[in-house]
């Protein structure tokens, strides 16, 4: 356990070194955010409520989408896929540690720095724009925190599953695009799931993607009752277990297939 803690600490320090870069990205992200706020303000002009949302609740939704961005990032998948593709995975396999546990430590260190920096964004919005963005109370924040942790666990599992394609194909971009599509529609990254028409909306509730983004945001907004919150978390946990079983299966298959090309 100590070795993974050391990996976590080292990666945390390394990621903190690049905090200016994180901030740079966040500031640029704020520009896109501001444009989206203008778009939704135009949409809500003359429409006080759309699909159960007011402009204020959409504003909170957009802010929280920015905050939860670490839960829909696929950087770990790209990095690990490169290690597999270039044959560098051999170096990990020869060392006395679990490869996935090592990447798990790297993942959490990276996400923690990201979340901490994004927290400053939340504080800024709470202070500067209380009319649109307000503190939901300690109980709701705690529920949100739990759903965020589950979202990050799910994100890690998806990242690793995505990277495992590199055992069989040389380029995983098509798969990462597929997951981007799934996240765009079924996690609520493009628009809140309540905006989806016809069968897409009920379909989204049977998929794991909403637990990456939509569900935690709705918990934060207090739109999900206490009982539904627990049910949602249990379903999210169920998906996590199912995906972990899938991950374990494909990891074993992949390792057998691994050829250490170039090493």
């Amino acid at each position: 356990m100590k070795k993974y803690w050391t990996v976590f600490k080292t990666e945390f320090q390394k990621s903190s070194e690049y905090r200016l870069e994180f901030f740079g990205h966040m500031i640029m992200g704020l520009f896109t955010f501001a444009v989206m706020v203008f778009v939704f303000r135009a949409i809500f002009q003359g429409n006080p409520e759309i699909a159960g949302y007011t402009f204020s609740s959409v504003f909170t939704y957009l802010v929280m989408t920015k905050f939860l961005h670490p839960a829909i990032r696929w950087n770990v998948a790209r990095l690990l896929a490169d290690e597999i593709k270039e044959g560098r995975l051999s170096a990990y396999l020869l060392k006395p540690f679990g490869v996935l546990r090592y990447w798990f430590s790297l993942f959490w260190a990276d996400r923690l720095v990201d979340i901490l920096i994004r927290l400053s964004l939340i504080v800024a919005f709470l202070v500067l724009l209380p009319r649109y963005f307000s503190f939901p109370g300690f109980g709701t924040t705690l529920s949100f925190g739990l759903s965020l942790v589950l979202a990050l666990f799910l994100n890690f599992t998806f990242n690793i599953l995505l990277s495992l394609f590199a055992f069989w194909v040389t380029d995983i971009r098509l798969f990462s695009t597929a997951i981007d599509l799934a996240v765009g529609f079924f996690a609520g990254a493009l628009v809140p799931l309540d905006f989806l028409p016809g069968i897409l909306k009920p379909a989204s509730f049977f998929l794991p993607f909403q637990y990456l983004l939509y569900f935690p945001i709705r918990v934060f907004q207090g739109a999900v009752g206490p009982e539904q919150t627990w049910v949602g978390m249990l379903i999210s946990l169920g998906w996590l277990v199912a995906l972990l079983i899938l991950l374990d299966y494909f990891w074993r298959k992949g390792i057998k297939h691994y050829e250490a090309i170039g090493q």
């Binding site: 778009v39 135009a42 949409i43 765009g184 905006f195 989806l196």
Partner: peptide, 14 residues
């Protein structure tokens, strides 16, 4: 598709 989804809710933007 994103635009189509928004226009599922409103008839015009600005």
């Amino acid at each position: 598709v994103g635009i189509e989804l928004l226009f599922g809710q409103v008839s015009s933007i600005a």
